[in-house]
Amino acid sequence: MRLVRGLLLLTGLGFGLWGVWLMRDFTSEQLVSMGTFLAGGVLLHDAVIAPVTVLLGVVAARLLPGRTRSVAAIAFLVWATLTVAFVNVLSGQGGKPDNDTVLHRPYGLSWVVMTALIAAIAATVAYRRRRIAGPPRSR
């Protein structure tokens, strides 16, 4: 185990240094741009996406009845992660005006349909669970 960990550590450091070596002839403008994206991604996640998710969890825990929370959380997981995965086509950016073989689908509409479907499935599951489980324990 010690040997495996040691080898992994050394290989990892080697890979990382090789990556930095590949950047040796990047101009300062390119490095600044790359650095902005590297730091910006972490900042966007740690300071915006993660706290907002936690906050939504807190709000949902206050508003939603106990038995529906679990379903709501999973529905949010699927919806939110898919929205982030599709943010490139949903952004309206990219493509070229003279090339209609790129990005010419109705992504916004698909997203609305996806959102509605996830909400409908979650509502159905929550409703059926409530019936199977009977009235909530706390009264």
Binding site: M1, V4, R5, G6, L8, L9, T11, G12, L13, G14, F15, G16, L17, W18, G19, V20, L22, M23, F26, Q30, M34, L38
Partner: peptide, 22 residues
Amino acid sequence: RTHEAVAWVAIGALLVHIAVKL
């Protein structure tokens, strides 16, 4: 070029992370 260079850094950091967390 940047997607390639950062890929090496990402996989390197991943291997270090696995080593630490094994």
